[in-house]
Each structure stands twice: as C-alpha cells, then as structure tokens.
C-alpha cells in the first residue's frame, strides 16, 4: 500500500506495518491509524500517521539508553489492546529532537506499546513517577557507558 510520509515522501509500505491506535496518541486523538517504519538512522523508528502525512513521531526502544526501564502501567489498559503477557508487546518511547540535536529527549512517562500480534497500539501513562516526559538520551546513555566501565 502507498503511504505519504513526512520523512520519505510517498512510499510503498507493507500491510504488516500498519498499526491501529484506537485511542490515538495524546494530543492527536483524531488520528487512529499509523505505520511503523525503520528510520534510516539507527536506532530510531518512525510512527507515521496514515491520515495526516505531517504527523510522524520518532521513536526509540527505551532500553537502548535506559536498560533499567520497566513498563509500569495499569494492566487493564494493556488488556484493552489485547495484551495478555509482556512478550506480546513492542515497547517504544517518543523522541523529541530540538534544533540542538544534542538535547534530544525521550518521553518515558508516556510509553508507546504495540501489541505485535494484533497490530494494535496505545500510548500509556507510567505509574512510576521517576519516569519523566523528558529524558535526555545522550546524557543518560553516557551514564550507562560510564557504569559499564
């Protein structure tokens, strides 16, 4: 299928990359269908709206820079997208990249969870108050490396 995307223009996308967000993304509740794309730059992904080419989110696997991150959310909210056990899910954090890219940050308070079997996704709200909307990726990554040394 053809999808018009913010990063790549109009491209052919495999049906299997289509993800339903029945509750939308907070602030974008009217958009319910997205495609999950690999970004050309590792380790990012794009979550591209199928209905609005201008709406696309950069995402990252939070474990890449915060190996201690755990999904702590209301269980019912996971069940509502058909998740029965944690193995069913793909976990992402939405990334904000300001003009100074060194200050790119990930939102760990509002993780995005995708039920990979059913292809249904949802943004959830973490119950753990230690996870904030802005975690500076490069800074926290440096800390992880330091600890490993």
């Amino acid at each position: 299928m053809q999808v018009t995307t913010k990063p790549f223009g109009t491209i052919e996308v495999d049906e299997r990359q289509k993800i339903h967000f029945p509750f939308g993304i907070l602030g974008f509740e009217h958009l319910k269908w997205y495609v999950l794309l690999d970004a050309s730059q590792a380790p990012f992904y794009w979550l591209q709206s199928m209905d609005d080419p201008e709406v696309a989110f950069v995402m990252i696997d939070p474990l890449v820079f915060r190996p201690d991150y755990r999904l702590e959310v209301v269980k019912e909210e996971l069940q509502e997208i058909g998740v029965k056990e944690e193995d069913d899910i793909l976990l992402f954090a939405i990334v904000t990249i300001p003009e100074n890219q060194q200050l790119m940050s990930a939102n760990l308070q509002g993780p995005v969870v995708i039920n990979r079997g059913a292809k249904v996704g949802r943004q959830l709200i973490s119950l753990n108050p230690n996870w904030k909307v802005k975690h500076f990726i490069l800074e926290e990554l440096a800390q992880v490396k330091d600890e490993a040394c």
Partner: peptide, 14 residues
C-alpha cells in the same frame, strides 16, 4: 505534560 511533549515531538524535523 505528555500531551505537550507529543506536540513538541511531532515538530521534530525529518
């Protein structure tokens, strides 16, 4: 806060 952060994230350049 999450809503605001999403709006900022959507402004990220390609």
């Amino acid at each position: 806060a999450i809503q605001q952060e999403n709006l900022a994230a959507a402004r990220t350049s390609a």
